[in-house]
Simulated assay, not measured.
Amino acid sequence: MIELDEIDQKAVSGLNGFLVRKDLVRTFSRQFPVPTYVVEFLLGRYCASTDQEEIEEGLEIVQRQLKSRTVKAGEEELFKARAKERGTVKIIDLITARLDARRDSYVATLPSLGLKDVRINSELVTKHERMLTGGFYAEISLSYDAAIAQESSGRPFGVESLREIQLSKRDVLDDLASARKNFTREEWTEFLLRSIGIEAKDLDERQKNALLLRMVPFVERNFNMVELGPRGTGKSHLFQQVSPYAHLISGGKATVARMFVHMGTGQRGLVCQYDVVCFDEVSGISFDQKDGVNIL
Rank of each mutant, 00 (worst) to 15 (best):
L94S: 12
R86N: 14
Q65M: 13
R86S: 11
V89E: 13
T96I: 05
K72P: 00
D100V: 08
E77D: 15
R98M: 13
R98P: 04
L78Q: 10
K80V: 00
E75W: 10
E85I: 08
V89T: 11
A83H: 08
T96W: 09
L94P: 05
R86T: 03
A73E: 12
F79H: 12
Q63N: 15
E85Q: 15
K90G: 06
E77A: 12
T70N: 02
T88S: 13
T70H: 03
R102C: 00
E75F: 09
F79Y: 14
K80M: 06
T70I: 01
L78A: 10
R103Y: 14
R102I: 00
L94E: 15
R102W: 03
T70R: 03
I91K: 04
I91F: 11
K67W: 08
R86H: 11
E76M: 11
I92D: 03
G87H: 07
Q65C: 04
K67I: 00
L78K: 11
R82K: 08
D100E: 15
E75C: 07
E85S: 14
E77Q: 14
L59T: 00
T88L: 12
L99Y: 03
L94D: 14
L59F: 01
L94C: 08
T88M: 11
I91G: 04
E75M: 11
I92Q: 01
T96Q: 15
A97D: 13
R82Y: 01
L78T: 04
L78H: 09
A81Q: 14
D104N: 14
A73H: 06
E75K: 13
K72T: 04
L99W: 03
L78D: 09
R86K: 13
G74L: 08
F79A: 07
A73M: 04
S105Y: 09
S68Y: 02
I61D: 13
I91W: 10
T96H: 11
E85V: 08
R69D: 01
R82F: 01
E60F: 00
A97N: 12
A101M: 11
R82C: 00
A97H: 09
F79D: 12
D104F: 10
K72H: 10
I95Q: 10
R69H: 05
R82S: 03
S105F: 07
T70K: 03
T88V: 12
L94Q: 14
D93F: 06
S68E: 14
L99K: 09
L59S: 02
T96A: 14
